[in-house]
């Protein structure tokens, strides 16, 4: 399969829509664990990204530049902790496909592997810490193990593994970030970062399937 620069822009626009639709849900999750603003922060960031997608990036044909601009725009709009984390992901993903106007199966796998490795490096969280890495690390492992020429089946397994990881955060005690100060009281609520990370991956899977 091939994803063109134009299609990549449309994928990011879909993330904008999903975040707008789910922002209240993400805030509800975050109120149980933190300061209740994860949905607001994501919305501020993706709305800023949307302006770029409709403006400066509308005619951009370099997939790497599109992704790294998405990352920088998100970072500068939100700061916070998700800012540097997602921004590093999108910038590293962008670097992996730099100069390409179309992404084939190998490029797409390289993109998401670089994305997740970037987030991991920036945040240093491990599986079990009750963060977005509980979604992303299992997804990365499944993608690496299952990728063999075809992107979609491998990414499908990655999203499934990520979903299991996301759901596992409900029973975890938070070990990192603001919610870690809750100790045992952080149990019983699904991590909002793990949830938004799953949304971003799932949106890409759905998008890729439609365009395959």
């Amino acid at each position: 399969m091939n994803i063109t620069a134009k299609e990549l822009i449309n994928y990011f626009k879909e993330v904008v829509d999903i975040v707008e639709k789910e922002k209240d849900y993400l805030c509800d999750l975050d109120r149980k664990l933190g300061d209740g603003d994860h949905g607001v922060t994501m919305s501020i960031g993706w709305q800023a990204v949307n302006e770029q997608l409709n403006g400066k990036l509308a005619e951009e044909s370099d997939c790497g530049k599109i992704s790294s601009t998405v990352g920088m725009t998100f970072l500068n709009a939100v700061g916070s902790s998700v800012g540097p984390l997602y921004a590093t992901g999108f910038m590293r993903g962008g670097k992996a496909v730099k100069g390409k106007s179309e992404l084939n199966d190998v490029d797409l796998a390289a993109y998401w592997i670089a994305f997740i490795n970037g987030v991991q490096e920036r945040g240093n969280a491990k599986v079990g810490d009750k963060t977005m890495m509980d979604t992303l690390i299992p997804a990365l492992e499944a993608l690496v193990v299952n990728f063999d020429r075809e992107f979609i089946p491998a990414f499908e397994s990655a999203v499934e593994a990520g979903e299991i990881g996301m759901k596992s955060t409900t029973d975890l005690v938070s070990k990192i970030g603001r919610s870690s100060r809750l100790g045992e009281r952080s149990k019983g609520a699904q991590d909002p970062g793990a949830t938004s990370a799953h949304m971003i991956l799932k949106a890409f899977l759905d998008f890729a399937k439609v365009h395959a």
């Binding site: 970072l75 500068n76 700061g79 916070s80 800012g83 540097p84």
Partner: peptide, 10 residues
């Protein structure tokens, strides 16, 4: 920064 959120690096 935004409300209760760190400012970005810029």
């Amino acid at each position: 920064g935004n409300i209760f959120a760190s400012p970005p690096p810029a």
